[in-house]
């Protein structure tokens, strides 16, 4: 059985490091719909992929969060990218593969992947 001992090492390593995650106003929020409709359509692996990749690529300004039903159930899984000073981008019918594309193109390089956005449907 994995024990809680390892947590002590993590604490010692992290102690003193205050604010290792930038959650200021200039950050990008990536919102995943996680109500019954979203979960049924496959939002859980999309959410997991997004948070894993954001962590892996060290995108400190990006915060992945979840929300309830966005009200567009037939378009789920839905991912919204909210950047201060810019119009909200709504990606629909998301999959883990598409989520990786969104990270590489939109979150890293700032290019909206318009083939997956809502207004193209």
């Amino acid at each position: 059985m994995k024990s809680l001992e390892e947590l002590k090492a993590i604490r010692e390593k992290m102690q003193g490091q205050v604010g290792f995650r930038d959650e200021g106003d200039d950050g990008i929020r990536v919102v995943v719909g996680m109500a019954t409709c979203g979960i049924a359509a496959g939002a859980r692996p999309v959410l997991t992929t997004l948070s894993d990749k954001v962590q892996e690529k060290g995108l400190d300004k990006v915060k992945v969060v979840q929300t309830g039903c966005i009200g567009l159930c037939k378009y789920e899984p839905i991912v919204e990218v909210i950047e201060p000073g810019k119009e909200k981008v709504t990606y629909v019918h998301m999959t883990p593969d598409k989520a990786i594309e969104i990270i590489d193109k939109h979150l890293v390089r700032g290019q909206v992947v318009s083939e997956y956005t809502l207004d193209m449907k």
């Binding site: 809680l4 947590l7 993590i10 290792f20």
Partner: peptide, 15 residues
């Protein structure tokens, strides 16, 4: 055990 280290920090999340 963690004191103030948040549960969603990458190290703790992986753990």
């Amino acid at each position: 055990i963690l004191g103030g280290v948040p549960l969603d920090s990458p190290e703790v999340s992986d753990y």
